[in-house]
Structures are given as structure tokens and as C-alpha cells.
Design a binder for these strands. Sequence first.
DNA 1: TATGAATGAGGGTTCATTCAT
DNA 2: CATGAATGAACCCTCATTCAT
Lengths: 226, 226, 226, 226
Amino acid sequence: MRSDSSSETPASDGRKSFIATARRAQILQAAVQVLTTKGYAGTSLARIADQAGVAKGVVSYHFDGKDDLLEQVVIDAFTRGAEEMIPHIVAAEDAKGALRAYLQGNIDFLDANRGQIVAVGEVIINLRRPDGGLRFDEAGKLEVVRPLAELLADGQAAGEFTDFDPMAIAYLIRDAIDGVSARLRYDADYDVLGFGAQLINFAERAIHRPSGEESTDSDPTDANGK
Amino acid sequence: MRSDSSSETPASDGRKSFIATARRAQILQAAVQVLTTKGYAGTSLARIADQAGVAKGVVSYHFDGKDDLLEQVVIDAFTRGAEEMIPHIVAAEDAKGALRAYLQGNIDFLDANRGQIVAVGEVIINLRRPDGGLRFDEAGKLEVVRPLAELLADGQAAGEFTDFDPMAIAYLIRDAIDGVSARLRYDADYDVLGFGAQLINFAERAIHRPSGEESTDSDPTDANGK
Amino acid sequence: MRSDSSSETPASDGRKSFIATARRAQILQAAVQVLTTKGYAGTSLARIADQAGVAKGVVSYHFDGKDDLLEQVVIDAFTRGAEEMIPHIVAAEDAKGALRAYLQGNIDFLDANRGQIVAVGEVIINLRRPDGGLRFDEAGKLEVVRPLAELLADGQAAGEFTDFDPMAIAYLIRDAIDGVSARLRYDADYDVLGFGAQLINFAERAIHRPSGEESTDSDPTDANGK
Amino acid sequence: MRSDSSSETPASDGRKSFIATARRAQILQAAVQVLTTKGYAGTSLARIADQAGVAKGVVSYHFDGKDDLLEQVVIDAFTRGAEEMIPHIVAAEDAKGALRAYLQGNIDFLDANRGQIVAVGEVIINLRRPDGGLRFDEAGKLEVVRPLAELLADGQAAGEFTDFDPMAIAYLIRDAIDGVSARLRYDADYDVLGFGAQLINFAERAIHRPSGEESTDSDPTDANGK
DNA sequence: TATGAATGAGGGTTCATTCAT
DNA sequence: CATGAATGAACCCTCATTCAT
């Protein structure tokens, strides 16, 4: 069965039968569990099948091989994440609001999907293409970072944000969010929301332009506070 | 049978012969190369031996199995990193200087050791103990983060830094540094120093207490920025 | 549970429905194509079903397993071949004519059915019974060679052919014809008819008794050509 | 271990150690046995290892995979065959002698190596390259047929042989020899030498120019048979 | 009739490790 | 010290077949 994302039939869930969809979900869930527990290198189709309570061949039947299965683990999460977060960001009235929505949206998503986050991270970090290159590489990362950088640049253009390299700071913010993912590896009960509050506070302090500051180029010429 | 802890000091009393030390270094270097090229899951003793130009058995002879070898890759780097960075940090006169030394030291180390960083990351992220737990887990991470958090707390106590949760911001800073490591995976020529400058700038803007600001929890005696 | 022997005569009394007959033909044709393209070891029911554009289960439904399907590929061709060739042979007036009819009939059949010949060969050579023995073995071969040997012996008895071991020469002629099949494996456009002409020429030169020759042993006492 | 045919050391058996050479031979012999008994499709590394009395991994250790192993089965036989037959052919004084040496040499080789012939045939017929093409294809066949065709053409030029297409008759002769191989599949005790005698007889009757016959396509200067 | 779903065996291969030399 | 040889487990994948629908 091909994991064809195109749906030729107008039916709601696409062309996959109900039972097939259910099995796929079941197997994906099992894969997430194994990835989280055993790590990427310890994740085998046999263990996934065992965890799902199905025969080993079933996994190969529903997915186009191990790589396809693991890809789906990531794609599923990304799809859901984008669906949840984007609306909040575009609904913001100004750059400050959009930045806050971006940060809070990511934090909330991580907090609400802790069960999947670690597994997704394992795959992103380890899954490679047959040629040896990483399956989820810089290109995918850029897709996530660039919008954030544009958001920051917009805020600078509107005079809301102070001077900095938008791309670098976008990476820095992503690093903080990815750091949360990493910490969930060690501590499933990590206080994601608490750290998120600190992160938002920190970021806004560093990014927001103090009222009255001049927007020149980069270096603030004078720093006589308010 | 753990590998002898004296293995890191081959010169002092000569517990390891010269040739053994050389072989170990040669194999470790090969392991780094394979890890960087093929990733953790693609790293086998056979490939390492091949890369090192030695027979497969040699690796097992000089290291107590695959896990021991991979551990050494990490420990070597950490040892060297600590040796290089700690002196600069302790030499700083105040918290601001220490923070800058910490950040610049880490950035410089990453920049100077790009060849090893990716390999080290692969192992830290993936290597697990026989019981399934991560070999380099939260405990090791805390060893790195806690000193930074203490440095930040000291700065707050001295009135140099503004208010924030030292632990959270320490994690945040570590995330940024680890983010550099991650980016080296995709781009061996990543501008580490450039990003580092932005990071330092950003961090200081968010951490330093603006002159004239009231300190809620520490001594406001000196608030005259430099 | 062998497949019903009436399966080859779908029309006579309608034991098989029209649709079933069509499906069988469709699947057999797909099997021929896969066998030709991928070889025996590369031929699976999945590939055949795919090539035929039907679900995998359909093949198992219409045929009593893989072996039955492959048998039919051979039997179909043999049945058709016999139907086409035998009439010409029995219609010949003398042994020389019968031999020529035999050779030309075989050549023409191979030439006209190149698309199937390779597939048939793959099965004959490889298909084995559950006990490990070849499904199409010496017995089947004899069925083909013996009539030819009898034809040759008749020609000798009639004084048309020179002295030789009829069975050995019958095998030799079959080898030449089978050789054509083999060559079609490598070259679908092989000049079957051209080789056939050379074969007939060669065979007649070696088999026909020169006029005036005594029927002694083998050596022609005088050789005053025509 | 690579099956490198080049030998960097001047030692007699090349660079393979004695024990490795012995194991390889043992495994090759086991492969021949399995191929002969079970056929190509029934030949697995597990069965070969079992037949050889070694663990499955040993086969993969000594050969570069299944294909490499099966190739060696063929190459070994071809190498030995060429070594045995070529000297006799080149030693012949005229084309008639060379043809007889060629035929007798092939027959004798088949007769003396019946144990391997069937296995070799299984591989030649079935082994395919990763791209789907046959591993031993037309090109290899031509290497065998062309020298025979040249031998025949030489005989024609020398007036020893009658008129025919040398290539076609060369193929025909090869077909007869290959037919012997095929017959050994069904009957391990096949009378190879007996058939060989008939074949030689038949071929010479069809190929040799009767004394006094005119040559149509070559130099008629000497038409007075010897 | 036809299909998708499921199974379990077996395929070849890679692997970390042990051991005699 | 170093090596080649051997092992057996685990890997992913393909297969022919069965079965409920």
C-alpha cells in the first residue's frame, strides 16, 4: 500500500479504508511509544508490531517500509502543529502579538503533545535518506525558521522591535523551543509552560524596542533608559 | 569490565603503552568521522575499523565494546572543552564578564572543534545504557547547566543582572549553544562566530540590568553602566 | 488439490463462466510478461497481480496457487504448439517431408510466439514439485523427442536417411530448437527464421542419404557430389 | 572480504589465506550441491550454510553476498573448462582436427564435471543483475561461440569445410553441447560420451566438404581434395 | 467474484562479539 | 598486539497463502 497523500476520491478521509486508517493510526501510536522508550536505534519494526499487538508483516503491509512509517510519525505531528498554531499567529494585530502567539503556540503544542514530541525528535535527528543525508534537513528547518525571521523583520520595520539580525534571533528562538523538546527526553513531566513563560518574558525583554529608542541601524547610540 | 579510567592520562605513569595510546586515538578519530558522515545508526565497528584502516578485531581489543568506544568520543571532547573554558570563566572579574566568557568560550570551542561536535552530539543523543536509559542523561546536562545558573544568580545578587529565573535562562542559553551544534550537522561551514556575536548581544540585552533600574531582590548600590 | 483439467476448455460446455475465463487469460498474460521481464525467481504473485491490474487475491482465487498458474503458462503454449504443428507433420508424404515439416513447424511456432517462449522456458527450467523434482522433467521431454526419433527411424527404414542413432540425433535437433528459445532470452528480435533455414539445411545435409549410397555404417564410400 | 581477483602478492594461491581458501571451496561445493538438488529458486544461503555445516553468517563473511557466491560457481567452472580445453584445440594441425578437439574437449569436460554442470547451468540461466538483466548474458555467450565460428570459418577458407553460415552453425553446435548440460539435469548418469560420439559424427558429416566438391565462396585454387 | 487485510515463514544482510593464532 | 575467522542474533523486507467481507 502506497502512502499516497493525494486523494482521488472526494470522500472525507481520502481513499484509505476505515480499517486501514485505524490500523495505521494504531501502528503509528505504537511507533511513537517505542521511539520514546527505546530510542531511534532501538526501534525496530518487530518491536513496533509487538507493541501494537499485530504480526510483523502487518506493519510492512500498511507502510512502505520502515522509513515511510517513521516519516509519517514526523509528518503527522508537523501537520497537526501547523494547523493549531498558524491561525493564532495570523490573527495577531501587530508583530508583538504575533511573536507572542508564535511562542505561546509552540509552547502549548509541546505541552499538549509531550507523548509524541520525543518520538518526533528521535526521527528528525536520526532518519536518513538512502544516500546518507538526513531526511529532515536544513531545508525543513528553514521552512520553520524563515517565517519567524520574517515576523521579526516585520516588527523591526514597524518600529516595534529593536535592532538585531532577524535570522539569527529566529534561530535562537527555535533553539529554545527545540530545547524544550530535548528536555522532554529526560523528563516527561518537565514544566513546559513554566519555562515557556520565562522564555516569552526573556525574548520580549531582548526584542521589544524600549519606547523612545531611535531606530537607526544596529548599535543604540545612547542608552539613557526611559 | 569498564575501561580503565587511567586511559585518559597515557603519559603520566605509562600505564598504557605508547602504541596502544596511538591506536586508541586513531580509532577514536575514525569513529568521529563515521559518526559525522553516517550518523549514529549508521555507525558500526566494522565501518570504524575500515575508516581507521585496521582490522575489526582491533577495535574490540582497544575498547571494551562499542559503547565504551562511543563514550570515549564524548568524554574526550568534554574533558578538552572544560579544560579550555573554565579558566576563562573563573578569571572574569564580575558576573557580566563571566557570562561573556562562558558564552564566548563555548562559541569558540564549537567553532574550533566543528569536526568533533557533530559526532559528539550523535552519541549524546543516542547512546543508551543496557537498561534502555540514555547514557548521557539529565544528570550530565545539569552538570553543565547548574554552574551557568549559579553564575546568573550571582550576577543577580550582585545587582548586575535583572530579574529572571536563573535556571530557566541557563537552560535557554544552553539551548542556543546546543542549537549551534545542531546546525553544524547540516552545515559544516556554519558561521558559528557570527551567530555567537548575535547571541551574546541578545543575551546581554535581556540579562543586564539597565542602569537606573530598581533591583527587587539585590543590592542596587551600583547601577552606573560602564 | 490440482486445478481442474477442464479448465483448458472454457468454451465447450461452459463449466467456467465467461468472466472467469477472461480473468484467467488476463492473469496468464500478465504472468508471461513478468516471467519474461523479471525471470522466474523475480516472478511473484504480487507482481503478476500488479501487472494484470487486479488485486492480489484474485490470482489465488482463479488459480490453485502459484504453481498451478505457472503450469498453465506452459500447458497453454504446448497445447497451442501441438495443435499448430502436428497436422503439418502428419500431412507429409515421406520422411524427408515430415522432418522438414517438423523443423519448419517448430521454427515458425517459435517465431510467431516469441512473446511467450521465454516465459515458458523460465517455468519449464525452474518449476519444481513440492518434493523437489522438476515439474516438467524428462518424461515431458521424451514426449517431444520420441516422435521425432520415430520419424527419423522411419526415414532410415525407408532408405531416405543415412545411418545414425535416431534418438541421439532427435535430441540433437531438439537442442537446436531449444537453443533458439534460449537465444530469445537475450535478444527478443533474434532472427529465428534465418537460423531455422540454416538449421534445416544443416540437418538435411547430415541426415539425408546421398543418392547411390549403400546403407552400411556411416562413412560415405564415394563422394561425387551432385 | 572482497572477492578480488587481482593478487597483489606473488604467492601461489594469491592473497587469500589457506583457511579462507578452504572455506570458500567448501562453501562453493555446498552451493553446487544445493543448486543441483533444489534448483536455483530453492537455493538459499541458509541451505548452503547448512549443507556446508557452517553458520549462515560464514557464507556472508567469505563471499560478497549471494550473487558473488553464485558467480563464483560459474566462473570457477568456466576457468577450469577453458584451461582444459583450449590447449587441445590450439594443438590441432588443421580445422578438422581443431573442430574434433573442440567437440571432444567439451564432451569430456561435461562428462568429467557432471557434478558441477547442472549447478552452473542453474546460475547462468537465472542469476540476474540488480537492474534485472541477466548476469551471464549474450556477451558471455558470444565469447564462447565466436571462437568456434572463427574455427569454422578458417576451415572453410582452407577448403576443409563446406559452405554454411559459420555463426549459425557455431550456435547450433553450442546448442548441442548445452543440450547435454540440460539433459544432465534430468539424468545424472546420462551417457555423455555416447551422445558425444554421435554428435561428432553428425557434425563432421554435415560440415566436412566431400572430396571433389566445388567451393562457392572461397578460393578454388585447390579443389583436388588431398 | 472480488477484495483488502492479515499472517508467519523465510529471504539476504549486517552486526557486535568471541576466540585461536 | 593484532588479526582473520566464526558465530548467532537481529535486522528489514518479500512472499504465498488464508480469510472475512
